[in-house]
């Protein structure tokens, strides 16, 4: 039950982009078209679930076992960077077509703060292994939802007559603000 709650909480109620402001850079940068944002979302979800599982193992079997929690930050960022590199090499060898659609997004994911944020939140809340995994998949799903909704709105905005000072980033931020207001409606859904 807790596993399902963690998933729904990460995906919708406490959406990573709209309530924790994690992954804002790709959210503002890669949300111009729906198809690219779906691919970006899938690549991020994939890395997030892997990162959640692997950092949990590292945290419990290396950092806590040897009493080194102050190295958490450095270890996590190195783990994520090498993980992304490995995934990129694996996909390039095993599935060239998948590589063509996800490839260019993978290097960007290393500096996506949503991944590091996810692993830090999971460690802070002391999730179990399965809960961490569910948290990772849920956070990825939430990121994808926010990115795709944003891309849909921005595709329509292309045809709108936006006042000159609001063009570009300010308009995107205002739309994100309204989306965040809408997502606040889910706040009563569950209390985790």
């Amino acid at each position: 039950m807790k596993i399902l709650l963690v998933f729904i909480s990460a995906a919708i109620v406490n959406n990573f982009v709209l309530t924790y402001f994690l992954g804002i850079c790709p959210f503002l940068g890669v949300s111009k078209r729906i198809d690219t944002s779906v691919n970006m979302g899938l690549a991020t979800t994939f890395v997030m679930s892997l990162a959640a599982a692997i950092t949990w193992l590292i945290n419990h079997y290396i950092l806590i076992a040897f009493n080194l929690p102050f190295l958490q930050n450095v270890t996590y960022i190195i783990t994520i960077a090498s993980l992304v590199q490995l995934v990129e090499m694996f996909i390039r060898k095993s599935s060239p077509s998948l590589y063509r659609s996800l490839g260019i997004f993978l290097p960007l994911i290393t500096t996506n703060c949503a991944i590091l944020g996810l692993t830090l939140f999971a460690a802070l809340r002391e999730y179990s292994f399965i809960e961490s995994l569910s948290f990772g998949i849920g956070a990825g799903a939430g990121f994808t939802i926010a990115l795709v909704i944003m891309a849909g709105i921005r595709e329509e905005l292309e045809f709108a007559d936006v006042p000159a000072p609001l063009k570009g980033a300010p308009m995107t931020l205002l739309v994100a603000g309204m989306l965040a207001l809408a997502f606040m409606g889910f706040a009563g859904l569950l209390s985790v």
Binding site: L18, Y20, A176, G177, M178
Partner: peptide
């Protein structure tokens, strides 16, 4: 002071 206010 909620997230929406930050974006706006």
């Amino acid at each position: 002071i909620l997230p929406a206010g930050a974006f706006l």
